[in-house]
Simulated scan of single mutants.
Amino acid sequence: MKKVILGKTNIEVSRLCFGSLTMTPFQANLSVEEGAYLIQYAYDKGINFIDTAEIYENYIYIKEALRGIKRNDYVITTKCYAYTKKMAEESLELALRELDTDYIDIFLLHEQESIHTIRGHFEAIEYFIKAKEAGKIRSIGLSTHRVAGVLAAGEVDEIEIVHPIVNKYGIGIQDGTIEDMLNAIKVIHDMGKGIYAMKPLGGGHLIKEVEEAFNYVKNIPFIDSIAIGLQSKVEIDSNINLLEKGFIPENLKEKLLKKKRKLIIADYCIGCGRCVERCRQRGIQVIDGRAIPNENCILCGYCAKTCPEFCVKVI
């Protein structure tokens, strides 16, 4: 698989990044052995880049997988919400310990919204800068669901890598359109920031148009790599085909269609009811302050476009 350098860093990654949230108890609930096997399988196919986060609670999967992977050829990104030196130190030491590694390739501040939130987290950034000087981190960055978050990265030299939402309908972008997001990404890419996109299938809602949706993101010239959730060999093989050939072979499509998918609502749902108003099938309702899908849900994904918190996903 083709490798690229993320921005001005010397970090070389595959064009496809293994999104690891989907294998966890929060979604597919794979065993550690199953998850580790998939990470190793993807590595053998050329995927040397994995995205995780402290909140995913899946370091143990990656630690197990690293037993069969050449560490200096593998790139690990993790994220945390730290905003003080103490919190940043605790997050880094947790990641090093639970992954059983001497360094983290990329450490991101999770879900940054604007320059104001970055300033509010700058004590953590200063700690990560020192950790980078000590060789415990190779690069620092941020993840964001907002155009303002992307643009804010351009104001901070220490932020080298940005992980934004990008999909053809802009599902999950909280403060603008996909056009706004692409304009912002191009600005910071031209400044030398490394870009790896998240949610090319809009949290699973674009699965029915997977080839068109994936190719849309793949063909954006200022995106270095694409993170996508992977929870089976079929999904790994299908996404590699999408990246390298632009389509999924029929035999893999048939296997994908057999997978029983479901709508899940993240536990940070605020119960605003916009999804209920949007659903023409009466397939979702707010109960005790949280949206809950019911037997009428047809997995159309229309409700996700109205969710201000990007809580609604298809797995």
Rank of each mutant, 00 (worst) to 15 (best):
E113F: 08
Y302S: 10
S20R: 10
A213K: 03
A266N: 07
I195D: 15
K253S: 14
K168S: 08
C269H: 06
K136R: 13
T22C: 14
G176F: 06
F26M: 15
I298H: 05
N241R: 02
L21Y: 10
Q27V: 13
I76F: 03
N241F: 13
G176W: 04
C80N: 15
F122H: 08
N72T: 08
E12F: 01
D100Q: 14
K253A: 12
T22H: 09
F128S: 08
L94A: 03
C311G: 03
I50V: 13
R71A: 04
G192V: 07
D51M: 10
S238H: 08
K168N: 13
D267S: 15
D288C: 10
Y61L: 12
I140V: 13
H110Y: 06
H121N: 13
F214P: 06
K258G: 11
R282Q: 10
M181G: 00
L206E: 10
K208P: 00
C311T: 12
E209T: 07
Y41H: 03
C80P: 01
I248D: 11
S238Q: 12
G141D: 08
I228K: 08
I248S: 09
K85S: 09
N296Q: 04
I298E: 12
I76D: 01
E93M: 05
E64A: 14
D224H: 11
V156Q: 05
K259G: 12
L96W: 07
I55Y: 05
Y169S: 03
E98C: 00
V276C: 04
G154L: 05
E57I: 01
L99A: 10
A152P: 01
K86H: 02
A291M: 11
C272N: 10
V4N: 01
E33L: 04
V314L: 14
G154V: 04
I195H: 15
G154A: 05
I315R: 09
C307L: 11
N10Q: 07
K130D: 14
E160W: 07
E277R: 14
R282T: 01
T9M: 03
I62F: 07
A213T: 07
Y302I: 13
K63C: 05
A131T: 11
Y103W: 09
I270V: 11
I137E: 06
Y169N: 15
M1N: 02
F49A: 02
H145V: 09
Q174I: 02
K208A: 05
N48Q: 04
R15G: 04
P293D: 06
R146W: 03
I298Y: 02
L263K: 08
E244Q: 08
G203K: 06
E211F: 06
